[in-house]
Amino acid sequence: MKRNILTVVIGAVLILIFALLLFVFQVRQSEVAVVTTFGKPVRNLTEPGAYFKWPWPVQKVYKFDQRVQNFEDKFSENLTADNNNLLTSVYVGWKISDAAAFFPKFAGGSVPAAQRMLESMLRSAKSAVVGKHPLADFVNANPQDLKFDAIEGEIESAVQSELRTNQCGIEIEFLGIKKLGLPESVAQTVFTRMTSERQVLISKLQYAGEAEAQKIKSAADRQAAETIADADAAATRIRGEGEAEAAKTLPVFQQNPELANFLLRIGALQQSLNQRSTLIFDERTPPFDLFQHMPTNSPSQQP
């Protein structure tokens, strides 16, 4: 009896497992799924988990990768608004947002087919948007005039609206320019222009360097002259101050101007006859007046 129960339980479990395999399917975290009944989509599953279905051939499950996929279009040439040939390539992060819409649109939900459609949409969106902008909108040192982000946004919204009207079940998460280029012949002329710009820069650097060095040197000279002139002025002022200070001693001398005059003259005499001087005098000059009236025989004369 006991064995019978065990057998029944095991049998039941086996049947259950078999039934589960037939009737249940999983949708992974990164997937979306469509359930078709005799080929007609009936259920759209976006949440991960285990779901019930009728076994084949009644119902069939199509699973799609729901993650953001990368797609880059071909590097293609368009004319900008100011008639420059510009090659552009953009990358798109797209994902399947509505499997029920995606599935019938592209034979059995083929991703390459979806990419082909994206490619053609991108091509027309790009040529429309690039044609509206001059090259200065793509490259510009002035952040206000640079329309890089705006151009990306315009391409994205053009593709986005195209996708919406076509109801493809595809959503664009982000879009950016991946590559910019110029045709080979244009690159050649750019090189020529760059070379001449460099040469202008070289001569400018040489000239400017010399001029600037000269400026620095002359400024230094001027400043040095100014410093010395200032110092001279200060010296004059200092001397003047000294004289003013000395003038305070004037009243002392004014007590007896005669004596002062006399002393001054003696001082001057002493100073002027200090060195390397020849003095010629006669007997009237003191203290040689002592020689006066002395008999002189011969005249004294320097050789």
Partner: peptide, 23 residues
């Protein structure tokens, strides 16, 4: 004062020429 000064001066002066009055 003058004589003191003169003596000082005369020691410093290099050449001294004395010219007595002609007779």
């Amino acid at each position: 004062t003058l004589i003191a000064a003169m003596s000082g001066i005369l020691t410093n002066v290099q050449d001294k020429i004395f010219l007595p009055q002609r007779a």
